[in-house]
Design a protein around this nucleic acid. Structure first.
Lengths: 123, 123
DNA sequence: CTAAACCCTGACGCTAACGTCAGGGGCAAG
DNA sequence: CTTGCCCCTGACGTTAGCGTCAGGGTTTAG
């Protein structure tokens, strides 16, 4: 598949896909005319990348960890384990914060909606 | 309390606190010489701001919601309720993604650590 | 009184993850 | 052949949330 198709199937922009490649996170074959061609499993790869990005990892962190993900327990170093532990802790903390915030919002929405109903009843 | 003290108690930088004020998220009294002075409850306010930021809200989104937070069920509009609902959904999704990613990491760390132990045993 | 530590207002700098534009090919249909 | 749509490589633009520096007052301990 070509880049436009991959973009459609993953929700990533064409620019973003080139960016991922530029940073060593995604590879492509090339046709004689230099057009990128992707294997079907690139779709899953890109979805993984997007999850990692949205989890707050940076390109270079992802680049360090990807060898572990694609060929588990092969390119493993003490350093990569440390990075994973740090990210694990960071993400756990972030989940806790987000949960707090979400609960705050739940409370606020309930209160606000109730108030809003009352207001309508009064008018 | 002055700005440096507030920074220490919240973990935010002095620059960040001024930035929050600049965007209408934090208010301060001023001494005759223009130095900012904060009420004690500014500490909690700043902590709330940081949670919201780390939950991925932007300054302008926070600015829209803050009236609801500080004076619950007062400045409530349909619009602000919609915003809160959208953010609530977004955050829920983000928590799910983060949980997936964290579980992936847990698995990888276990596998990697085991492999690493084996490697040492072999050498 | 004076030095150290703190605060003020601009205003330019920075990074990440792309957006966007310029300029130029490639290929299938009609 | 040409119209239309997709693709290529630079390379500059953008946005948010601060960092940092310049130049200049202020507060406090001794």
């Amino acid at each position: 598949m070509r880049i436009g198709e991959l973009a459609r199937q993953t929700g990533a922009s064409v620019r973003a896909l080139r960016y991922y490649e530029e940073h060593g996170l995604l590879s492509a074959h090339r046709t004689a005319s230099s057009q990128r061609t992707y294997d079907p499993d690139a779709v899953e790869r890109v979805r993984l990348l997007r999850r990692l990005y949205s989890a707050g990892l940076t390109s270079s962190t992802i680049a360090t960890l990807l060898p572990c993900v694609s060929t588990p327990s092969d390119q493993v170093t003490r350093q990569s384990i440390d990075i994973m532990r740090r990210e694990h802790a960071r993400i756990s903390g972030q989940i806790a914060d987000l949960t707090t915030t979400r609960d705050d919002l739940t409370y606020l929405i309930d209160a606000a909606a109730a108030f809003h109903r009352d207001q309508r009843r009064m008018s």
